[in-house]
Amino acid sequence: MNYRIDRIILILFLMFTGAVAFVPYLVQSEYQLRVVTVVVLWVGIAGCWNMMSGYTGYIDFGPVVYFGIGSYVVAIAMTKYSVPFFPSLFLSGCISAFVAFLVGIPTLRLRGAYFAIATFAFAEAMKQITLEFDRTFNVSFFQGSDGITLPISNYENSFFFYCILPVTFLVVFTHYFIEHSKFGYALKAIKEAESAAEISGVNTTANKLVAYVMSAFFLGLFGAIEAYWITYITPSDVFNVQKTVQMVIMTLLGGMGTFLGPVVGATFLTLISETLGAQFVEYYLIMIGAIIIVAILIMPSGIIGGLKIRKKLRFI
């Protein structure tokens, strides 16, 4: 019975994505299109975090590093080596994934707070290295705090919308896949009881690493697309810890380790920041702080998580 609900949700989701694809033809202003694009972007980014941390329970406090690497790869490939956008984009995803592979092997052995701190430290170290590299070695590569200006594109906002939408779709669809696959059961088993998972035959190291690398690959793509969209990047922007915080909070609000959690959480929070954030700039962060505290205290499983428990749904 639950499996049927599950099918219905998938069909609804596909229809919804299809409908979203027509948004550029429906919006009245560039501003509206921009808001929708940002929502779709954040659904994807939050989804990347959920894919790893939501399902395995390994709290990654440095996912922004792969977003930043993606941004820098695309910027350097396009400006220094004149590679066109789409090949650079693909390269961004691959390099992010490769770095995640190298970093994941030692860090995924750590548990709990240690993993969280190690990932955080790695992200901050990368930010400092991109900031200081040129000055220290007297070269011009990352261009430190001056940042890099990408080639200005002639593309409309709708071009970026259509770049982001498929990637976000893939991220959410990956969640759906995780919910229904052998791989997903491995991740959930790791989250619930890692040592029991291991003695039940789950190759914990490999499965964690796959989730981590996948999440990094998608983050790299998002970083690259956003860099090209905004056309100007600095280490402080693309490696901003605030981005990590957003991913975590969006996922948590929606529900960690659920298929629709990041979708709901990211949409909700992005819309709030576009409306409240614009009207009450001074109080915005105080309110976000309060929302976080209240959310943790009254609904620790998030919106979707809570619904799932109450309605006894399995896969949403």
Partner: peptide, 23 residues
């Protein structure tokens, strides 16, 4: 109120506190 729950709850909660107090 979050002691005994998964550790992430305490990280996020104290992060919320950080945002509120600082702002």
């Amino acid at each position: 109120r979050v002691i005994g729950q998964p550790h992430i709850m305490s990280y996020i909660l104290t992060f919320g506190l950080h945002l509120m107090v600082a702002n």
